[in-house]
Nucleic acid binder design. Sequence first.
DNA 1: GCTGATCGTATGCGGCAGTAGATGATCTGT
DNA 2: ACAGATCATCTACTGCCGCATACGATCAGC
Lengths: 138, 138
Amino acid sequence: MDRPELGFLLSRLMREVMAREKPILDAAGLEMWDYAVLTALAESDAPTQAQLAATTGRDKTRLIGNLDRLEAEGMVARQPDPADRRNRIVSLTPGGAEILRRCREAIEAMETELLADLDPADRAAFERALTALAEAGR
Amino acid sequence: MDRPELGFLLSRLMREVMAREKPILDAAGLEMWDYAVLTALAESDAPTQAQLAATTGRDKTRLIGNLDRLEAEGMVARQPDPADRRNRIVSLTPGGAEILRRCREAIEAMETELLADLDPADRAAFERALTALAEAGR
DNA sequence: GCTGATCGTATGCGGCAGTAGATGATCTGT
DNA sequence: ACAGATCATCTACTGCCGCATACGATCAGC
């Protein structure tokens, strides 16, 4: 049962995916973390910064800098939560959403190409399994 | 086609796997990198340090420290290559192989448990696809 | 034999990571 | 009204990362 180490396979694939994402994000003037933040923002509505840090896995103090930059460039907006004014509610601006949409499109195309060599059934199973497993880690 | 970002799924799963590996490696007194090095050593025979750095993805100057430690603890041995005395050929000692074997066993058990909830067919396809994709990144 | 390249090693740099403590604004429980 | 908790922010600290450089030993081509 000389199964190849799950961790090593994942890290190798991860490196490959990131290498292919980088030029796309560079072209849009985004860092990896920026993209993660924007994506999280598009998926959950009206998150507070602490929530955003939790869902992206980014340290909350590090997140601040990213948001500063993204806000300065008009991609996100921070508003005090009317229900609890300690919170800052972060949201995507239309401009940010548009940039995100373009990146996402390019990245999906890249991923499609990356997965193209797989047997279609395997590919579907791979995506299904990966989604389930990623969920398992909460 | 709102496919969930491959990169994000991978990073979440990766974090989960590493979190589960950590206690096992801690118990054996190994760092993540040590384990990667030992595993690479078990798989390819008589690699030079430069080759080892390439296959593990570790910076060659950083690798030195790991090898120093592993050598001091008797897990690996460094020998000058008789064919080219600039090279140092790194090899697993029996003791190192034994420690690696035990870790690998525990980690495989952990992985088996992690994958246990998957549909068996999906699981097989997942491993097949992951192996193929990891290969794609050379 | 010389020159230039390669390998292992040591060292220093800048960058990025998380953690911890302090601060000010704000909320909650009593 | 007051005490304690929470949130965003700032700053200092520590540790790991890759990268570049330098150096001595060694090899290969001419």
